[in-house]
Amino acid sequence: MRTRTPMTGIMLAALMSLGPGMAHAEVPETRQAELMHLLTQDCGSCHGLKRRGGLGPALTPEALTGKPAVMLREVILHGLPGTAMPPWKNFMSTQEADWMVQMLLEGRTDAP
């Protein structure tokens, strides 16, 4: 059990279904605050409050340089089986995960 299953299939499918227009995911402001709280506190328990890493790797813009946003979003939604990274799809929609990736890539810690 807990073996790493290949993610490539899912990611390819996701890549193909997605145009370049994901940069501005639309998420209501109150929800943004909740998501930012989740990102800081709950993701923070493994990735650090300041995203500089812990049991999980750093999620700072520098650390994520060159990693496709869609791939990151899929990791957040489905986790990485066989590792400690869990799937968060029951906590957020695809659009909300896109927004979270945007916050990570821009290094933003403030909710509007």
């Binding site: 059990m1 807990r2 709950d42 328990s45 493994c46 049991l55 986790g79 400690a84 869990p86 799937p87």
Partner: peptide, 13 residues
């Protein structure tokens, strides 16, 4: 101890 069942996701260690 998991008796071969698929583990539930762990959102905090």
């Amino acid at each position: 101890y998991g008796r071969g069942q698929e583990p539930l996701p762990v959102f905090k260690m």
